[in-house]
Nucleic acid binder design. Structure first.
Lengths: 192, 192
DNA sequence: GTCTATAAAGCGATAGAC
DNA sequence: GTCTATCGCTTTATAGAC
């Protein structure tokens, strides 16, 4: 990867930046993630950061959010909507979620933003993320035999339980809370 | 509580300050709750605030946290531990929680602090709050007939569901999520 | 006990050299 | 594309008048 007076210029390193930014936002929250911390985490000076993200911190958080949303869309939501075995898709969701959140050691940035000071700033994408999660899961549950109302209630309960488990795991500093919640969820989701 | 050069002077207004501070912290998070906002919400200048809380924002948040903890201890935890009808105590917990969190319109400050930047600052009281909640609820469940392990799992699930419901209600800007979660919880907790 | 004024530090963001 | 230097503002916290 080179600069090459002209032509191409992939600047793909920009994409590699987002996961780093995500961890800073997760660890310190939106307001706690100062440009100094971000600069330290990425090894880039403020000048470079503003070169990549002219919109500053807001743009950084927005793009991180979009990347997370995209990951869940392809890895979690889409499989739930696919017309395959719905029970297998639900099981895959649970293992995927467990991996993504590092078995409870990693917090949900979307939830952090929802509770934080900047919630109004990101209200729309935050709402959309959870709405699509619930809808996708409800679709799978419906295909597995539940009626529409039960599927919606059970999907909401699942999404909420995952968020709560992450909060409690962090609060109690005990990641195992998350694993227990996922196990409980599995039996609850796959029950008749 | 005394000053006494001049009789009385209870300075009890200090206690009346805490709920106001609590709402500011809830609404803006710990770092988002600037002294300017706190000054505006309380109608007190910075000088007065530092007169009441020489430790500044940290002390304010710590005392608010202690007050919340005390409220839950007397209104929620203690009844769960009392040797009365455990099922009635659990039902009372749910209605008390619903009232405290304004049916989902109010967020849990303890959870906010757990996820926020200042989590290390308040790690001990935050952990203690959730631990005592779970223990008290598990005791009631045990008295209602469950074995120790089931009681602990079900209590953890309940505490986590309440937190998750508050997160999701805020994220989706739909307080009714909370009411549905409490209803679901009632059947789950009181089930055989 | 309450205020205003101010100190000292950190913040996000910008400018411009290289 | 990356850096340093710096601006303008806000932050927490303190000092001191009243």
């Amino acid at each position: 990867m080179k600069t090459r007076p002209s032509v191409t210029k992939p600047s793909t390193d920009r994409a590699a930046l987002l996961p780093l930014l995500g961890e800073v936002f997760r660890a310190h929250g939106y307001e706690g993630a100062s440009l100094a911390l971000i600069s330290e985490a990425t090894g880039l000076g403020k000048g470079s950061l503003y070169h990549f993200f002219p919109g500053g911190k807001r743009q950084m958080a927005a793009e991180v959010l979009a990347e997370i949303d995209g990951w869940f869309e392809t890895n979690i939501f889409a499989p739930l909507r696919a017309p395959d075995d719905p029970r297998a898709a639900i099981a895959a969701m649970l293992t995927g979620v467990d991996a993504y959140f590092r078995s409870g050691a990693r917090v949900c940035l979307v939830g952090v933003l929802a509770l934080g000071h900047a919630r109004d700033e990101f209200a729309a994408p935050v709402n959309d993320y959870f709405a699509r999660w619930q809808d996708a899961l409800a679709a799978a549950l419906r295909r597995s035999g539940l009626n529409a109302a039960s599927a919606r209630r059970r999907a909401e309960d699942a999404v909420l339980s995952i968020q709560g488990a992450l909060v409690l795991a962090r609060a109690r500093d005990d990641a195992k809370v998350f694993g227990r919640a996922l196990a409980e969820l599995q039996t609850r989701l796959l029950a008749g």
